[in-house]
Write a protein that binds this DNA or RNA. Sequence first.
DNA 1: CTATTATGTTGTGTGAAACAACAAATGGTC
DNA 2: GACCATTTGTTGTTTCACACAACATAATAG
Lengths: 412, 412
Amino acid sequence: MNTVIGVPARPRPAAAATQATLREHNLSLVARIVLGAPTAMSRADVAVATALTRSTVSRLVDDLLAGGLVREVAKVGGGLGRPATPVVADDRLCALGLQVNATFLLARLVALDGTVVAEEAVDGDFVGSDPAAVLPLMGACGARVLATAGADRILVGTGLALPGIVRPGTGTLLRAPNLGWSAVEPVPLLATPDLGPVQLSNEADSAAVTVAQPVPGRPDGPQDFIYLSGEIGIGGAAVLGGRVMRGQHGWAGEIGHVCVDADGPACPCGSRGCLERYAGLRALQTAAGLPATAGIDQFAEACRAGDEAAVRALETALGALETALVSAVNLLDIPAVVLGGHLGRLGALIAPDLAGRLGSRVLAGRFGGPTVTVDEHVEDRAPAATGAAISVLEGVIDRPAAWIDGGGRPGR
Amino acid sequence: MNTVIGVPARPRPAAAATQATLREHNLSLVARIVLGAPTAMSRADVAVATALTRSTVSRLVDDLLAGGLVREVAKVGGGLGRPATPVVADDRLCALGLQVNATFLLARLVALDGTVVAEEAVDGDFVGSDPAAVLPLMGACGARVLATAGADRILVGTGLALPGIVRPGTGTLLRAPNLGWSAVEPVPLLATPDLGPVQLSNEADSAAVTVAQPVPGRPDGPQDFIYLSGEIGIGGAAVLGGRVMRGQHGWAGEIGHVCVDADGPACPCGSRGCLERYAGLRALQTAAGLPATAGIDQFAEACRAGDEAAVRALETALGALETALVSAVNLLDIPAVVLGGHLGRLGALIAPDLAGRLGSRVLAGRFGGPTVTVDEHVEDRAPAATGAAISVLEGVIDRPAAWIDGGGRPGR
DNA sequence: CTATTATGTTGTGTGAAACAACAAATGGTC
DNA sequence: GACCATTTGTTGTTTCACACAACATAATAG
């Protein structure tokens, strides 16, 4: 009699496997091995890593070279035998990330090796703005960034990150409370040709992509964590196995609307006692008696200076974060919390205490409890732009055959 | 310029695809088409459903016939042309489900077509029991059920469902508070040969399997929902895309330890204000002034009779459920709640009110809010036994080639 | 009884990976 | 400097699983 240990469930087959899907799968696998490696890989290295034969890998790498996903670099000497030919990400392949926030628009061109090729921002007050006026500005900004890129760059497409609820698969922004927008189809409003196919995403989800995968195809960051961000309120994302949770409507991971006090203040979302009422930036400013124009750094400075209202606001927020995260960490059985946005900037003030409180309360406490870290991109005000671009490049890495067979240019 | 709509992310390739995995995948696909159909499918029907050619399907079905996953039944007449040969699940293939609960042990033999071939229960008080004494009883019960099955039945293996925290991939039960067990490796303690490979699972997770997939290979039930069960406390599971969430330690979906009151009573789990403190069966009994031996039906009767303490306890539990589920539904963006266990038996008293409250509070409220239903197996005191057996059969459906190539008998 | 239709089977072709052999490019040894 | 060993990459051929085409089977309609 045997104990069956560690037999994972296979993904349910949704469609038949064919010779074509076999090739697509293995092209993607080889691409990920090459892009994911910190140093260059040779065909022989890839054969070892994938258990495919050297002849198979040779043929697959030929296809990836032809499609512009990878390129060869100079051989490095050393050792007996024929020197290996290193293969790396081809940085000519790029995606454009666009991010709309309450106080700025930013366009960023990201190459397949993760480098930022060019970027430009437009500052302004976009709270309560008209999407028909703002989105063309965003599109124009993107077009200017594309214009500064060299002619050898190949644009795969564009990702547009918005601070609101995006229905997956519909191209519709349901609501963006910070901007005052609702029921908008943003992509046509960009009114800019040459952006290639445009995909829409939520700001927190896109920023979380950057945490898990700082470089396209290279999941170097944590793969299972709760991400908190926010600008006025609180945004959130849950990442499981390297993937951002979607949920039925596209807003899974929305920790801002976890209830932390059953008798708490009413929330515009229809519930009450939501985390956002306590730990959103606007909530902190109000509780500390600061104006809406005060940034999070002013709030932090007031706390450090011992301002009584600010310290009390921080403590209230900390308690609310603790309650919300205890529930979230227990429910998702997830090992890490990453703070971004204004909460990331408060990280030094809140992360150690928060980690300690969570560690003594969650089910996983006896196994080391969740880690609480600050997003290393916290100094970057637009990580969602990078994340949106990375998601677009992911699409090519997922389906290299479609890209290669389409001539290595954006398709329909 | 195109809007990219509805391009789902492909699962990341973890290993190379080969001719062998191609066959495995398509065997599994064909098996699921046949098992999942409410009426018999012919080879031609399967070819249409899968976009594989009739010759390919014919060969794959031959393999499944040989492996004992499917069988042919009498042709049905009608229409021009050669009559189709219907193919259905072969009900000779079985799995044994075992369930240990605080008040009974139950063994149930489930066939591949979902029918229960035989079952037997042993009643007792297993709270604070010794696993070394109880698990051999469970094993013996299972062996008796196998003995009553006909010689034509083929046992794939056994699933053992326990009311506690099971570490996936380790064969270890971390803790089962209701039984008073901790750090146990239960499978060898069954001390029964002939059970085939045994896999361990959590009781709520297994019961949720039965909700999503009442018949092996046929996901007729909801595929995205939060399941609540419990016997003394509260157990829970989250099912996404037909799969039970695991999490890092195996307890994702544990809604019993979502915090509903930041200043609530301390919980043995280390936190405070946990849902279990308000809506667990023991909590209800205590609040209503009923003895620990009183069943949930007595509690329900006291509520219906207008007993003041019981009504107040129910209202408190309802409020706690509302708070916990608002957070869970918002965080997971999940469309349904299914009540099982003692909460299922209270369904008539709480489901309508709970649905109304959730509908006005969750983010999805304006889209129809979550449904709140009662598990249709609520009269079955051991749905986890069925779920554990179904999970074992799932393993064969996932990897038919491994089963067929292993001679159609349990492997290592 | 023949024609038509639908289903199932089988021989052969195709595509992608595997296998085997060979070519290329190095360093070590004599 | 020639030869050998080693490692990597390439290429011709084989294998396996699905696709294609043709045929066989089993029914009903006229």
